[in-house]
Amino acid sequence: MHDGVALGSLLLALLGGIMRVSTPFLFVSLGECITEISGRINLGLEGTLVFGAMSGYGVSWLTGSPWLGVLAAGVSGMLLGLIHGLLCSLPKVNDIAVGIAMMLFGTGISFFIGKPLIQPEAAMLPSWHLGSWSHDPQVRDALRVNALLPLGLGLAALLRLAFKRTRLGLVLRLVGDNAAAARALGYHVVRLRILATVAGGFLAGIGGAFLSLYYPGGWNEGLSSGQGLMAVALVIFARWDPVRCALAALLFGAAGALGPALQSQGLTQGYYLFNAAPYVLTLILMTLSWRPGQTLAGSPGELSLTNRS
């Protein structure tokens, strides 16, 4: 064993972390991005993530097809999104608070229904072995990719384009920025917001399926340790830009691998602090990049979380 930290090996570990850990962050934050662009916030996506993980695992177990599981996860995410969307459309109902309550409800119902799913083994999602050219097992493993990751990255680019170039994207942004104006132009604000929340739920559900059907794989009650909540926060950090959401998700994925990688190389003190590194980094980046007094660039004007100044 060497004393220093092997840089190459560390970078490989971070790359592996991106491939393995970032996908749930990616899907949840893209989903939340769509919802927030429309002027709603759904803090309950942690519950949606867990619910998707459970139902995806269950369906994969019942049908033997992990891709059907992914679909089921998305659909069950839509269901929770629909509930959230409908409730928040009632006058005087606070979307932040309903989100937190929905998080509790979503995780509770997943744990309850998921009891019989802890023991059985479901079919897992396959992976592409992009590193088969290498003889280094670490390279081979770091380059093992699941199709959902490139799919999510592509989706991020597509969404950015959609928000800028397509009619639906522009309408959605208008609805999120200025509901009165959208209404004056004849758009159905409430319906569009519900739609955006349902779409957000769909993506968050898929993020959950990645957890149970690929990495770490399996269903149990501790599967998500707050990734969903963090991903929601990342959207504000990324300032409602899908591509920046994707970058932030990749950053969190790499950071998730940092602590264990350093420990496995013998740097064994202060692992709690290493593990908290992504949070510190996010906070510092946020502090450096935001200016007082100025409205957040890209902030949807109707968003209850940021519309105060």
Partner: peptide
Amino acid sequence: AAAQVLQGLLFVSLL
């Protein structure tokens, strides 16, 4: 988990 469902239901309804 049943109690968690109950808590979630109660707070969703309250809100």
